[in-house]
Design a binder for these strands. Structure first.
Lengths: 189, 189
DNA sequence: CGTCACATGTAAAAGGTTACATGATTCG
DNA sequence: CGAATCATGTAACCTTTTACATGTGACG
C-alpha cells in the first residue's frame, strides 16, 4: 500500500493526468518507483474516492478528454504522515545482476549483449535526467537554489537518479570488459 | 517466475541450506535480489520437485537437521537458458526516495533521521561486501584473478553491491546536508 | 530463565503483471 | 494507410508480504 504515496509524491511536481503520470512512472519517477498504467489508473480512482487528490475534467479538441489530478490538503497530510512513519527498505530485484552472477556458466555473448543494452539505456536516462536537472536549477547555482526553491525534493531525487544511472552505466561497461578479458584468456588456453 | 533464477544463481557459489540462503537473500544476495524465508523454502521445494536442485539431508548433533541444496545439470541449464533469453528491467521501489521527494512539504526531522539510518545501513553493508570481495580475490590482483578464476560472476555482482552501497551512502549524506541548509535558510527568514 | 540463532514451514491477504478492450488523431 | 501517441480502463493470474506455527540448543 505505498504505490499511493509514490503517486502523491509524483503530484508534488504539479497536477497531471493519469496518462502523464504513466510517463513519469515509466521512466521510474526519476528512478525510484515503477508501476504499470493499469495500476496507476486504479490507484488514482481510489485516491480520488478517499479525497487525497482532486480531479478536473479537461475537454480537449483533437485529443480525448482527460482528468487532471492534483494533491488536496488531505493528500499532502498523507505524505507528511508517511514520511513521519517507518519506511520499508528497498527490495532489489534485478534480473541483469542475476544473469551476471552466472557469468562463469553461461555463454558470454548473451551477457555482453544484455550489458551493452543496459549501458545504452542508462545513457538515455542520464540524458533525460540531466535535462530535468537543468530545468530544475534554471541557471541558479546549488547554494542559491537551496535558499530559494520550493522544489528541493524533486532536485534531490533527480540527483539520485543521475548518480544511479551513471553508476549503472560504468558498472556495465566495466563488467563487460572483464567478461571479454576472461573469454580471451579461455580462448588462449 | 524468476525468484527461481535468483535462487539457482545464488547456488553457483556452492551448496547451501534454505536457512543459509535466507541469510544471503536477507543481505540481498549481494544487493540484487530480495526474498523472505517463506518464499525461499517454497521455491526450493519446487526446484527440487522439478529436478533443478538436489537435496542432501544433513543430520547434525546439537542443531536441527538441515537440507543442503546444490545445482543439478538441469539447474545449470536453466540458468544458461535464462541468460540467453530476454531480461526484465529493474522495477525500482524505494520508499526513502519517495519520502525525500516530499522534502518541501514534510518535517525535515523525520527525513534526516531516515537518511541517517540508511547511510548507516549502507556503511554496514559496505563493510560486509568489502570482506566478501577480499575473500573472493584472496590476494590476487584483478588481472591475475580474471585469468584464473571460475568465480568471476560473484566478483562482478559483489562489485556492483559495493558501488551501489557507496553511492547510496554518499547520496544520503549529501541530501541530508542540503535539507539542513534549507532548514537553516527557512529559520533565518 | 530469557533471548538469540538454527531450521522449516502453512495460510490468508495484499500487491503487481499480463492479456484484452476501445477509440480518436497525428505523422511519415 | 499503418504505426505511434493520447487516454482510460477490466479481469485473470502470478508474486510477494504478513501473520502464525513449532521446536532445540547455546549464551549470558
Amino acid at each position: 500500500m505505498s504505490l499511493r504515496h509514490a503517486v502523491l509524491a509524483a503530484l508534488i511536481q504539479g497536477e497531471a493526468s493519469g496518462y502523464e503520470l504513466t510517463k513519469r512512472f515509466d521512466v521510474g519517477v526519476a528512478n525510484f518507483w515503477h508501476s504499470r498504467p493499469q495500476q496507476l489508473y486504479a490507484e488514482l480512482t481510489r485516491l480520488h474516492g478517499e479525497g487525497l487528490v482532486r480531479a478536473t475534467e479537461v475537454v480537449q479538441e483533437s485529443r480525448p478528454t482527460k482528468r487532471l489530478y492534483a494533491l488536496t490538503d488531505a493528500g499532502t497530510q498523507a505524505l507528511v504522515d508517511f514520511a513521519a512513519g517507518p519506511l520499508r527498505p528497498t527490495n532489489p530485484r534485478d534480473e541483469l545482476t542475476v544473469a551476471v552472477q552466472c557469468a562463469d556458466v553461461v555463454e558470454p555473448e548473451a551477457l555482453l549483449a544484455h550489458l551493452g543494452r543496459r549501458a545504452e539505456e542508462a545513457r538515455r536516462k542520464l540524458d533525460a535526467l540531466r535535462r530535468t536537472e537543468t530545468s530544475i536549477l534554471s541557471g541558479r547555482d546549488e547554494g542559491e537554489f537551496v535558499r530559494t526553491t520550493s522544489h528541493l525534493g524533486p532536485y534531490l531525487t533527480c540527483r539520485r537518479g543521475i548518480r544511479y544511472e551513471a553508476e549503472t552505466e560504468q558498472w556495465c561497461v566495466w563488467a563487460a570488459g572483464l567478461i571479454r578479458a576472461k573469454r580471451r584468456a579461455a580462448q588462449a588456453s
